[in-house]
Design a protein around this nucleic acid. Sequence first.
DNA 1: GTCTCTCGCCTTTTT
DNA 2: GGCGAGAGAC
Length: 767
Amino acid sequence: MLDLSRLNPPQREAVLHDAGPLVVFAGAGSGKTRVITYRIAHLVSERGVSPSQILAVTFTNKAAGEMRDRIRVLLPGVSCPWVGTFHAICARLLRRHAEAINLNPQFVIYDDTDQKAMLTRLVRELDLDERRFVPRELARQIEAAKRDMLGPEDITARSFEQDVMQRVYALYEERMGQCGALDFNDLIYRTVLALRKHDGLRTMLQRFWQHILVDEFQDTNLSQLELVRVLAAEHQNLCVVGDDDQSIYKWRGADRRNILDFKTSFPSAEVVKLEQNYRSSAHILSAATAVIARNSEREPKTLWTENPEGEKIRVIVCADERDEARAISEAVRKLRDHYSLAQMVIFYRTHAQSRVLEEEMRACNFPYRVVGGQRFYERAEVKDVLAYLRVLVNPSDDVSLLRIINTPVRGIGKTTIDKLLDMAAQRGASVWSTLQVAVAEQAFPKAAHTKLAAFTELMADAQKRASQGRGPGELADHVLEKTGYLQLLRAEDTAEADGRIENVEELVASIREFENEAETPTLSQYLELVTLQSNADEVNADDKLTLMTVHAAKGLEFPVVWVAGLEERVFPLTRQDTLRDDDLEEERRLAYVAFTRAEQRLYLSYACARRLHGDLMVGIPSRFIDEIPAEHVQQVSRVNTGYGGYARGAAGAASGSYGYGSSRPSGYPSGARPNYGASGNRAAPQQRFIGTKAPAPKTPARPPGESYIDRSDADEGGSVFIGMRVRHAKYGEGQVKSVEGGHPPRVTVAFTGWGVKQIVASFLEPA
DNA sequence: GTCTCTCGCCTTTTT
DNA sequence: GGCGAGAGAC
């Protein structure tokens, strides 16, 4: 008998919900996963539903894995239901029913790099202007179309651009089919199309799955909604769980209306709200709810907690990003008395921010791990090896074939490849089959022919081995041996090459591991697993400090959370100077996600100056800090000017007050105060540009009360900003036009009467 | 054909 | 600060 005593009343209601659609609005830290897993356990153990008739859909592989683990604990000895990501489930369905729906069962999945390579080729083939029709942009549009269940024929072209897009899309689809390739969005799009078209398949699956549960429903897009709607049509037992306030993937097509309007789409749906938070201290929860309350169009909910008040949130005002990193390391050092490193996490808005933090943690000898970043399977050398394996499974895979045809370098150059591509386009066939014909007919000049023939022979031989049932590991070894890939890297004898060798070896090890552990250790299974796995989710077994983006943090919780870089333009992130309301609301949800990960202690920091894209910018505290009621905050300034960072109004709504306040009566020495507006720089309304290509201010940086010009520091080349008025002993007054850096650092200055000169920065002083 | 250097782009977030 | 693409030299 399943023990439901640990569930609160709404949780129990959701678990026991009998039949028909159910939407669970699960606030942050309200026990969402517990509800899903208990519901599944309840269905199996109390209601006699067979596990195989339950489908549970998640958003990430990690969430799927955790759900499986928890179900196994609740249902020991019982087989596990289908639990997987939308993409993994669809890939499995498509492969299993490939023949019935006229699909190559050996299809490969193209990631965005492959997709871009394909589009680049098409753009060139159609002789389009690559600057006007950027492959990445075309990819984005095709993605958007598929998310909305639109094929090429559904695009109404109202302009030349749209017309071209439609043609590219159509050709893209044709070529993808020819290559036996599907992109990420195809997995869902094609599954839905197949379900619409093939009555037998649809009916079978609709009857098969009696219960469908979807996690993180706020992040589903139209095609995903359509998928579960179709699959649940027969039994209507669709249970969706999510939190509209934690929807952070709008840019990827996620539509919050899917959960907000669930009751409209399924009028018989029962609505349950989980509002008790078990995770965070009262201060943290109150702060987070106050911030998210600023958003419009939310499902009304009131989160509450029985947890103690806890510590106030610390807002740390830092001089610059290095100072911020130091503030974090100092805090970590102190906190280690009470917490393990694994209990602490640093969040940031963009990956670019991690570098400085990593440097600091390394300098302090704190073991850390960065989640995300450059992914293992996207590294060039790893993709190379995988491309060989992909061609073995599916020789029509042009993108992979073209990747390896001259990798490692074997004398098959651009001219030869271009000719080969022409032939393939004319024949309307794959590059591989064209290659075989060309070799047989000796269509190329002797030198090129020899090399092409050798490559063809190499691949044909490996294919033979593959078809004889050699395992993935053996095939990988064979290919690496025959191509001399590793020998060539070893011969390079550089640290970089050594790193690549390590990665290749790690890949081979992962293939071996797969062989030993998988039920069906086929090469194509392995390739699919690899493509659908974002990053090898390391186990957090060792005691390491974690660094990650806020997006990566969804679903996690930590006793101690530090959110770095809470500055306007960084978090909320804005590209240009505009921030549309709905984009701002998404950023606010992101902040809400970040804050609500914290259990006991939450630190928020911002830097008064930050190097961004190589430019030095003035940091203005994020509006999300201002939106936290003052009673939950304790501010700590590391910028000792007697001016404690920014002035917080009594109501905590002192928006528009800057770290370097224009309201401050005395600050910059007379004349040295940056005259942003008049300097003719790109001065954004909320963020001022104060320099370029100059090192960040020395750490600890000068307090803002002092000038950026400081001769003792001039030998670092910093402390000068474009537009600044400066004085030179000989040339007199002038205005800085650009900052060159170098040793010694030089600055280009336009002097009154002397013209533009390059001057070593240390000979200048503020005018 | 290959290698190297420079330029210019961009950095939001991921299955 | 990092990468890919393209141009130019060998």
